[in-house]
Design a protein around this nucleic acid. Structure first.
Length: 717
DNA sequence: ATCACCCGGGG
DNA sequence: GTGTACGGGTGAT
């Protein structure tokens, strides 16, 4: 028996476990009241016990913060629906509140020692949560996609369905109502455990629901009526950028997974199941969360198991610092300015999971950095000299250590069990993302167990480690070409020896990441100094590594990407520096051919599309630019764009101040659409300059060369 | 010159 | 149910 999914209905305070057996998948219902904790006012126990919505209240002994001894608190079982009312009321009375905004499903799982995707024997767990080898039963999975019946113009929810593809069957009836009814029948008949979509949350499922509602049909994609949450998607701030998250369409008793979601893409189904088991987050929710949320879940789980309560609305102030201390502490990771230009026989060496390893090796956690129990600790953070606890191992290291080990084991198995390499690759890859985000979360002011001083301490150790590595490399006669955070590019002999020596010295594995036949570090276009993350090179296995230039950017039109890739393809044939220089005329020939195509109107409009995320709504733009013109055009077509959504446009007249003339939405373009040839030509030159600037080819010079080669056709541009 | 706006990670 | 900080590019004002 397999715990496929577990859901909670806050209205009825009801847990539903979906258990898959040989005979099918059945729900098991159970009433469950989550527990909240109230600190600071023990005399309120009788009053709390009699509150409406409170099912039971008693005294308990719990730690109210990491590293603190247990103290007397009130524990209350409450109806989920009234948690926030009760909490607000008690907060107003001066109580401290804990475990308020925890997911009831995860509380339940921890309380009953269960986890998603667990194997059960009757009511008893027959599995182990952190096991590396575990059984996953055969799951029936089917693809679903809904294709609207319109092929021109902008598609909206108001367009009727054209056809529905479900597994191998294509539903293409005369009437839309029939198609939807037919889908219901097919789903019930096939009875899959998983329904996979491509962006189903943003389009297929909301569209299907909308169309079904128009015909008064109950769409039943789940094994029971779906719980659909009200409201649309949300814009949120992440990675310094506004993103749009559509509302999730979760099914009951069946898993709707969007294969284009981040976690699914990175880990596939098996990676997702692995992560779901260890985090306790059910698969459907997990597939829609960022790795940061998974990290938080692991931390919260560990805290709860340790008897530590999770404060509500936590707001730990930063300790007071002098201006000078701030200056020292705020310095981020170490950076060595790259040596601009072409280099032969260069090596890239990287530390594996540098920051997580620092946290584990140096016991960095909110309760251990600047702990009050060891003010005279021998263990001091470099540069800032913060004291680190010598008595207890912090929450963060205790969460990360097993995670690092789990990933290492999977990485080893890729080699030792090649027949299952793909599976282990996915599993280790998902864990990699947890490790990567575990650092950033430290500096996030809303992270539950984050603390800015931890963030500073980690970067301080990082600087020290990279400096030490440079010192060792220098001592071994290596020339340092470039260094950033956890990577170093060096020139010299025997990089394996360097890795070995540094790994031994630092205690964190330094790995040889790439051996380059040649590599070009690019300058900052505005001041000519080495740009930190703009380079391209060819490794000895013939593979290209490219960073920072147009082809790596998601908003770049296919035309420009094709141009750079064609030019890189020519350069990749060069085995060394002198061959590289000999390839430059061929690169210019590529540019010439693209120039001719652009100017002769031969480009397909689909190759000219810019894709960009808008950071604000239509009326909030302060500048008249391409995005604004595109958003305005969409609005005229009746389509509202929310911050974080993606828009597409083709430049038709870049100098125009008229939003209808400046760009065009691809769906509105037709045979008569004329793209802005001069502007796209300029982009061709610029993308070439991006690659060849160290060799003296500026945009102007390239323009001159092109004009020399094609006198007539360039007239007027 | 300064401000506004967008992108970036790995295999 | 959400990493920051910042470097880099381009374009508007």
């Amino acid at each position: 028996m397999f715990l496929l999914d577990i859901r909670y209905d806050p209205e009825k305070s009801k847990i539903t476990k979906w258990i898959k057996t040989d005979k099918g998948c059945q729900p098991v219902h159970e009433v469950y009241y989550p527990k909240i904790y109230v600190g600071g006012k023990p005399e309120l126990l009788p009053q709390i016990a009699s509150l409406p919505g409170v099912k039971d209240a008693c005294f308990d002994e719990k730690s109210t913060w990491l590293g603190r001894s247990p103290e007397k608190v009130i524990s209350a079982k409450v109806e989920s629906i009234s948690i926030y009312d009760i909490a607000s009321m008690l907060e107003a009375k001066g109580c401290s509140l804990y475990n308020i905004d925890l997911d009831p499903v995860r509380q339940y799982l921890i309380e009953y020692n269960l986890f998603p995707a667990a194997i059960l024997k009757g009511d008893i767990l027959d599995d182990s949560q952190y096991a590396l080898d575990y059984e996953v039963p055969e799951l029936v999975s089917m693809e679903l996609s809904v294709i609207p019946g319109r092929y021109k113009g902008i598609i909206t929810m108001e367009d009727p369905i054209g056809r529905i593809a479900f597994g191998d069957c294509v539903i293409e009836e005369s009437s839309e109502a029939e198609m939807i009814n037919n889908l219901n029948v097919e789903v019930a008949h096939a009875d899959p455990d998983l329904i996979l979509t491509d962006r189903g949350d943003s389009f297929d499922l909301p569209y299907l629901h909308h169309r079904a509602a128009l015909h008064d049909i109950d769409l039943s994609l789940g094994r029971e009526k779906d719980i659909l949450h009200e409201g649309g998607g949300k814009s949120y701030f992440s990675y310094g950028r506004i993103l749009y998250k559509p509302k999730g369409y979760l099914l009951a008793g069946r898993l709707h997974l969007d294969r284009s979601s981040f976690t699914f893409r990175e880990g596939g189904l098996l990676g997702l199941i692995d992560l779901s088991r260890i985090t306790g987050i059910p698969l459907q929710e997990l597939s829609r969360l960022s790795p940061g949320s998974a990290v938080t879940a692991l931390q919260v789980n560990q805290a709860l198991r340790d008897g530590v309560l999770v404060p509500w609305k936590r707001n730990l102030a930063e300790y007071w610092k002098t201006a000078e201390e701030l200056l020292i502490a705020d310095r981020g990771a170490l950076v060595i300015e790259p040596k601009v230009g072409l280099h032969e026989n260069a090596f890239e060496v990287d530390f594996a999971s540098l920051f997580p390893n620092i946290m584990v090796n140096h016991n960095i956690s909110p309760e251990t950095v600047l702990c009050t129990c060891c003010p005279d600790s021998q263990k001091r953070v470099p540069f800032t000299h913060y004291n680190i606890c010598q008595q207890h191992i912090g929450l963060i290291p205790r969460v990360l250590k097993p995670l690092i080990e789990r990933r290492m084991t999977y990485k080893k198995r890729i080699m030792s069990e090649p027949e299952r390499a793909e599976e282990y690759e996915m599993k280790q890859n998902v864990l990699k993302w947890l490790l990567v985000t575990s650092f950033g979360y430290m500096g996030f002011n809303k992270a539950r167990f984050g603390r800015i001083e931890c963030h500073e301490s980690i970067t301080a150790y990082g600087r020290e480690i990279l400096l030490r590595t440079i010192e060792l490399a220098d001592g071994m006669g290596f020339e340092i070409l470039h260094g950033i955070v956890d990577s170093l590019w060096v020139k010299g002999r025997n990089p394996e020896k360097l890795c070995e020596i540094v790994t031994k010295d630092i205690g964190i594995p330094l790995e040889l990441k790439g051996e380059f036949r040649w590599i070009v570090f690019l300058p900052n276009k505005s001041n000519g100094v080495g740009a930190l993350n703009r380079y391209y090179g060819v490794m000895i296995n013939g593979k290209l590594k490219v960073r920072g230039i147009e082809t790596r950017r998601s908003d770049t039109p296919t035309l420009i990407r094709n141009l750079q890739e064609a030019m890189l393809g020519k350069l990749a044939e060069a085995k060394n520096a002198s061959e590289f220089y000999m390839k430059i005329p061929e690169v210019l020939e590529v540019l010439r051919e693209y120039t001719r195509k652009v100017l002769d109107n031969e480009c397909a409009l689909s190759d000219l599309i810019f894709k960009t995320h808008v950071s604000r709504g239509c009326d909030e733009y302060r500048q008249f630019n391409n995005q604004m013109a595109a958003v305005k055009q969409l609005k005229v077509e009746g389509i509202e764009t929310l911050a974080g959504q993606t828009i597409h446009y083709i430049i038709t007249d870049h100098k125009s101040r008229n939003y209808q003339k400046r760009v065009i939405i691809p769906e509105l373009a037709d045979e008569s659409t004329q793209y802005d040839r001069a502007k796209y030509y300029e982009y061709l030159l610029r993308a070439t300059e991006s690659m060849l600037l160290p060799f003296g080819y500026t945009e102007e010079r390239l323009d001159g060369i092109m004009r020399g080669r094609m006198q007539r056709s360039l007239c007027g541009y």
